[in-house]
């Protein structure tokens, strides 16, 4: 990995800006046969819950144009098994690991942070606030600034000061900037933007909703413009808060787009299901794209799209058409 792609999320330095997105990289073991996990900027775990969760019945996924709709029901082994079985494996492989947490109440978030405190091998903690809050009749924390902030505060208070806490926000909010500001006020050191967006598909054969969960989360390239918009708006309001851009990244140029909007790193989710080698490929393509634009350091590209229109950026040389691979 070249110095060109080095990046940082606040105090957390990463040799590569390409991460796996929460819930899309399995336990790490499933990806390991395909590429050296050391090439990951970081591995983000599936959101860890307090108890084991079987999740929703099948069908959990439907294919939509350039996207997936999934209703998973937050399946996972629970934090105890995670700490015994999954995290130690990642530590053994020397993989920088961001642990994602999912609680159904502020107390549960606090408990999860407490269980994780001091555990070796946690590069950062990501708080998945796209969870139903049982204290609020199941409405998502991510939809309400105060609820999201309370979850972040609980995790920040329970986490060692040196370990960054990232707030992972969902686009299904009236104003994502308000939510982001509330989370940063509550102590979030960075933001992961975005989680899936609620959508729905109906099976025209069975004449019923395609998913058992009825509605589901839209992910994949279909979501990318929404992610770019969210990153752009939040970076404009919080230019000094590091952002992990997530949503439909499948190529190096997709990654660059989120970086230009204001992300310091990107996470690849759905593309991993289609291409298990997506992470090293996106990294290679991003390095090439930066070089073609004579951008020497990734940091110089972060938020570049916010420059006023009169600014003349380095141009891509016209006779080098770029390979594009947009699912």
């Amino acid at each position: 990995m070249s110095d060109r792609v080095r990046t940082a999320l606040g105090p957390l330095e990463l040799p590569s800006p390409v991460l796996t997105a929460a819930g899309c990289g399995g336990t790490g073991r499933e990806l390991a046969p395909f590429f050296d996990l050391g090439r990951l900027g970081a591995f983000t775990t599936t959101s860890v819950t307090a108890q084991p969760r079987a999740g929703r019945p099948t069908p959990r996924v439907a294919e939509t144009p350039s996207g997936l709709l999934t209703a998973m029901g937050m399946p996972g082994p629970g934090i105890e098994t995670f700490l015994e079985r999954d995290l130690p494996w990642l530590v053994e492989q020397d993989v920088r690991t961001i642990v994602s947490l999912a609680g159904h109440s502020v107390e549960e978030f606090a408990e999860l942070a407490h269980r994780l405190r001091g555990v070796p091998g946690v590069a950062a903690v990501e708080v998945n606030v796209a969870c139903p809050n049982v204290a609020d009749r199941g409405r998502m924390f991510a939809r309400h600034p105060a609820a999201a902030a309370a979850a972040i505060r609980a995790v920040r208070d329970g986490t060692r000061p040196g370990t960054p806490v990232l707030a992972k926000l969902a686009p299904d909010a009236t104003d994502i900037v308000t939510i982001a500001l509330a989370c940063v006020d509550a102590g979030a050191d960075g933001l992961t933007l975005i989680n899936t967006m609620e959508g729905m598909a109906i099976d025209t054969g069975t004449l019923r909703p395609a998913l058992t969960g009825v509605s589901g989360g839209l992910s994949g390239p279909a979501l990318r413009p929404v992610a770019v918009r969210c990153v752009y708006q939040v970076h404009a309001a919080l230019p000094h808060t590091p952002i992990i851009g997530t949503g439909g990244v499948a190529t190096g140029l997709d990654a660059l787009e989120l970086i230009l909007a204001g992300a310091s790193a990107v996470a690849v989710g759905t593309a991993l299901f289609h291409d298990p080698l997506a992470v090293p490929r996106v990294l290679r393509e991003l390095e090439e794209a930066l070089a073609a634009r004579r951008i020497e350091r990734l940091a110089d590209a972060v938020g570049l799209a916010h420059r006023p229109a009169g600014f003349v950026p380095p141009q891509v040389r016209p006779h080098e058409p770029e390979k594009e691979r947009t699912p």
Binding site: G26, T46, A54, T58, P59, R60, V61, M72, P75, F273
Partner: peptide, 11 residues
Amino acid sequence: ACGTGLCMTCM
């Protein structure tokens, strides 16, 4: 959706 054990949908 993936065949590789990542997506957890074929449970």
